[in-house]
Design a protein around this nucleic acid. Structure first.
Lengths: 250, 250
DNA sequence: TATCAGCTTTGATTCAAATCAACCGGAGTA
DNA sequence: TACTCCGGTTGATTTGAATCAAAGCTGATA
């Protein structure tokens, strides 16, 4: 079922908030430079939407259905769960981002995607994506870019985990969130965290107490103001200093 | 210039050591399940081979030429180099593996690939790869799998860096190398490391002294025998125990 | 063969983060 | 209202890895 695109034609992604699926796709795809034809073609293959409640999972390790998911609304985390209970968050994903790129290799999802708040996603089966890409080859190239970007992002996280101190990690994390909020049209200096200290710690390779201490330290230095889940960045320049001279963007 | 494949038809990758480019591609591609037609098609687009001397670089951060590289012979490392001199090895790559998947997103290589010993690679320009994929769609699917596998691998490394102790990291690393050597037809319990302690440390998020100590500890426990760069695994089961109950495969 | 630079090992010390523990505060509920 | 659970903060202590330091080894080269 093709989705109408005539109803909205916002090209500025910062204003795209409607529930039109193609708009959501536009929001997704503009950053990678898709043109109207490509967006419309992609809209045609979006088979269905799914809602996930807070705490619910979009997919789990071992689930076989192969799809790419575009987040239309909400906030999710992906994580690896080990047999011994060790768990690691591999990423946080917000409205307008993509999910599920790990599933292609194994025919099976190797990590879980769990909603941190009520969310809604578009599901794009890989088969459909590949099918349409044969007609519109440029789409495939964009898809490659997205996958490649994920690899680069992961390398950034590896650098963070391998060589940064707790405070540097948190600064990097906050600046990354800030940038993503800004990109989606929200304030870059005022936002609410959707995840707990423990989840942040898991992502950054730290314990929750260490995360809490790092927050307190940044607040003591007047760089940020923390009120539980609410973060206000008072001095973004000094926060960048904390990050060190890294170009890494997680 | 098409490459002849009639001269060799080894299907058992463990014996493929010839300098025939298509053989090398076969070696590369069999693990992902390419058929003869696909291998031959890919052989046709391999534009040229490159030799890299020990210490030389295949590509550097900032170089713009976009290609996928298939290692025909040798051993390379990829690493991110930060402005402040911080450097992190993101992976080691041996004969029969692929390189260059990070370049697609940015139109530019974001990390360096440096030869740890004299090496030789096939260069496959992305454009050619995409071109041929339009004719043979299954090839594209394999390419996706390879990229996806890289993402999964990176997640494994993130788990390692985020939650493992020094000894667990080294055990995981050795078992991973072991498996890859086995896959290429070498001994899984007797091999030579191509990289220094410092490079291992950089990859595992440890200092070189810590790596050395971890080696010594495993030797003291009679799990491995270390003679400088030569490693012999005496008790692979106990080495696996050291790894912890992780399924992660770096 | 001697020399030298780079790599490796080992020991002593320091330090950052984990761990252990106590307490606080808000949301939900009996 | 009192209770409990959960998430967050803060303090004290422990611990694993980094750092500093010295010395041994190896392979390349003159």
């Amino acid at each position: 079922m093709p989705l109408e695109i005539s109803t909205c034609n916002h090209l500025d992604i910062s204003h795209v908030r409607s529930s039109c699926a193609t708009c959501s796709l536009r929001e997704l795809c503009l950053p990678v430079g898709l043109n109207e034809q490509e967006i419309q073609a992609l809209g045609d293959v979006v088979s269905h939407k799914r809602k996930i409640q807070r705490g619910g999972s979009l997919y789990r390790t071992g689930s076989k259905f192969q799809s790419l998911f575009a987040i239309r609304r909400g906030f999710l985390k992906t994580c690896i769960l080990e047999q011994d209970g060790r768990q690691q968050v591999t990423g946080f994903h917000m409205t307008g981002e993509l999910l599920g790129l790990d599933a292609i290799s194994t025919e099976i999802h190797t990590c879980d995607a769990i909603a941190l708040e009520d969310s809604e996603v578009c599901e794009i089966p890989f088969e459909k994506l590949e099918e349409i890409s044969r007609v519109i080859p440029s789409l495939m190239r964009h898809f490659h870019k997205i996958m490649s970007r994920e690899i680069v992002r992961d390398h950034g996280v590896m650098l963070l985990l391998g060589s940064m101190k707790a405070e540097e990690r948190l600064a990097t994390f906050l600046l990354n969130l800030s940038r993503r909020f800004l990109m989606r049209g929200y304030s870059e200096c005022n936002f609410n965290l959707r995840m707990t200290r423990e989840e942040i710690g898991s992502y950054l390779g730290l314990k929750l107490e260490t995360v809490s201490r790092a927050f307190s330290k940044l607040q003591d230095e007047n760089i940020i103001t923390v009120d539980n889940k609410h973060i206000q960045i008072n001095d973004i320049a000094r926060l960048r200093m904390k990050m060190g001279n890294t170009t890494c963007d997680t």
